[in-house]
């Protein structure tokens, strides 16, 4: 079973999210998942009248565009992903610089690396 999600490129992200906002969707959250090859996959969840729609974005580098210019509420979850996955959101306000949960920028992001017991800390 997989979630049906529209695949998008990071360049189109802000436009796609803005379009969903136009339709009156509520921003639910972002889920970041480790992808196989060191990268990460982001799932953006939106709710409209109790039905969810998702956007899927594959991240290869470290940089992701922030959507908090569109949905200001995204700042919290984007900061959380910065802490957990060591990614960097461009245009994030306020940017806690990995101090939301961790000690700062030099602390290792816990969700990086292979999954499973071997990758645990």
């Amino acid at each position: 079973m997989t979630i049906t999600a529209d695949r998008i490129e990071s360049g189109e992200l802000c436009r796609a999210v803005a379009a969903l906002k136009e339709q009156g969707c509520r921003f639910v959250t972002i889920t970041c998942v480790r992808a196989d090859s060191a990268g990460a996959e982001m799932l953006y969840h939106f709710d409209r009248e109790l039905s969810l729609s998702h956007l899927r974005l594959t991240v290869s580098g470290d940089e992701v565009p922030s959507i908090c210019g569109i949905y200001a509420a995204a700042f919290l979850v984007e900061n959380e992903i910065q802490d957990h996955f060591g990614l960097c959101f461009s245009g994030l306000i306020p940017d806690y610089r990995r101090t939301l949960y961790l000690q700062g920028e030099d602390s290792p992001p816990p969700f990086r690396g292979p999954s499973g017991p071997a990758g645990g800390q």
């Binding site: 639910v28 959250t29 889920t31 970041c32 998942v33 480790r34 200001a72 509420a73 700042f75 919290l76 979850v77 999954s115 499973g116 017991p117």
Partner: peptide
């Protein structure tokens, strides 16, 4: 083991407000 478990709790969504 699960690959990923993500929990978005209600307060997490309410705090930005």
């Amino acid at each position: 083991f699960l690959d990923r478990l993500r929990i978005r709790t209600p307060t997490f969504a309410n705090i930005p407000a």
